[in-house]
């Protein structure tokens, strides 16, 4: 069965004709062309497919596309505007938080949600780790990712 959904994708209104069995991740990759959304497990274990739905992080592999109807979806593509990296993206670059890069877009979105959620509220490294606990990385050991997020929060406070 197919259904048409209307979403705001990275700020632009879009309509997609989807199979009701399809995940949001599949529609984002195959129809919208937002290839930053990566699949690492397909069942919500690794967080590589994290997108923001109404600014909350969601594993798009276990979120049906039809559930996104009428909602705002953000992917990593939308975070870089006019050739300028977002603060989170910039911090990831500077802190060496990127290795193979396959988990990076998911982490960027989870970190973006974390830094936007309670602006001005300080988060210590343990709280950042808990905030990113839904995302797995096998390369970095997480320290540089935590440092990157810490840096963003500090910058916001300045």
């Amino acid at each position: 069965m197919r259904q048409t959904i209307a979403i705001t994708l990275n700020g632009s209104p879009r309509r997609f004709d989807v199979d009701v069995r399809q995940s949001l991740m599949e529609v984002l990759r195959e129809q919208a062309g937002t290839l930053s959304v990566k699949q690492g497990c397909g069942v919500g274990e690794c967080g590589a497919c994290t997108v923001l739905i109404d600014d909350a992080p969601v594993d798009s592999c276990i979120y049906l596309a039809v559930w996104a109807d009428g909602r705002a979806v953000r992917t990593t593509e939308g975070e870089c505007r006019d050739g300028q990296l977002s603060p989170v993206q910039q911090a990831f670059v500077e802190e060496g938080a990127v290795q193979c890069g396959i988990c990076t877009p998911g982490f960027v979105m989870a970190a973006t949600a974390l830094t936007e959620r309670r602006p001005g509220e300080p988060l210590d490294r343990d709280a950042i780790r808990r905030g990113l606990a839904g995302n797995l990385c096998r390369c970095t050991g997480y320290a540089t990712i935590v440092t990157a997020v810490e840096k963003c929060i500090c910058r916001e406070e300045e």
Binding site: R29, E30, T34, L35, S36, V37, K38, Q39, T75, T76, E77, E79, C80, L85, Q89, F92, V93, G96, V98, G101, I102, T104, P105, V108
Partner: peptide, 21 residues
């Protein structure tokens, strides 16, 4: 020095095998 592929990866523009659809 800035890692050569860091920007490609944080923007999600780096292409992996599954992106060659």
């Amino acid at each position: 020095v800035p890692r050569v592929d860091a920007v490609a990866k944080v923007t999600g523009r780096a292409r992996y095998t599954d992106d060659y659809h």
